[in-house]
Amino acid sequence: MSETTSNENDYGFLIDASRCIDCRACLVACSVQNETPMETTRIWIKETGVTGQFPDLERYSAPYHCMHCEDPSCLSACTVGALQKGENGIVTYDQDRCIGCRYCMYACPFQVPNYEWKQQLPLIVKCDMCISRLGEGESEPACAATCPTDAIIFGRKSEMLAEAHRRIEENPGKYIDHVYGEHENGGTATFYVSPAPFEDLGFPSAGEMSPAYSNRLVTHGTPTVAGAVAVGLSSIYLTIKHHEEAMEALKNGSTHEADNAADEETQVAAQEAA
């Protein structure tokens, strides 16, 4: 039950860890394109470290950036709605709205949003698929355009997912049988294939349901809870008040009754006497 559903115009990435040579040209391209310092690029490298026995050594790496979830946790977290799901499924960040509460950084299961820690008035740093570049008519973001080995490719999301599965099926034994990003956090727009297990690459293991869903279950209940509490409290106040007044009336009334009873007794006594 995701609030934002994907459609056929959505963009997506396919990232192949078997092709990445850790040249970091994508980091430079991102830095130049988005005019950010290298230490706060919107893309970085995850890697396995060197594994295996000499001479059969292995090392895998993969570029890593915002996954552009179908139901992004950061959207649910952001106090001021600076994070939005834009056209083509791009998760955008409005730096003019951001108040710097950093809730999105904690909410993101992929630990993607970064922060300009060294700035006096810092902002969040996050991939937006080079949305301005795409708007200028370019066909792909800077990282995908720059990658010399086509480890990052960019296109329609459905095509990227199909290509990911095709690579796994047509190359038995080359990749582990898992397209990372297909189901993670309720589905994303970034798909990874890798010869090494994703936990070895340092990828977080995200559940198949976005916590944004659980969050909505609770936050959407707010008006109901508010109404119920306000009505409940009013009814308790009025009930007790009513009860207190009734007791008061009863106390006064019963004095009357006692008087009446006394009167009747005198009357009965008078009649008997007569």
Partner: peptide, 16 residues
């Protein structure tokens, strides 16, 4: 920009 929470509501956000 502390006052932004007054003018840019996100009804899904617990922090809002």
């Amino acid at each position: 920009r502390f006052y932004h929470f007054l003018i840019y509501p996100n009804l899904n956000s617990a922090l809002f």
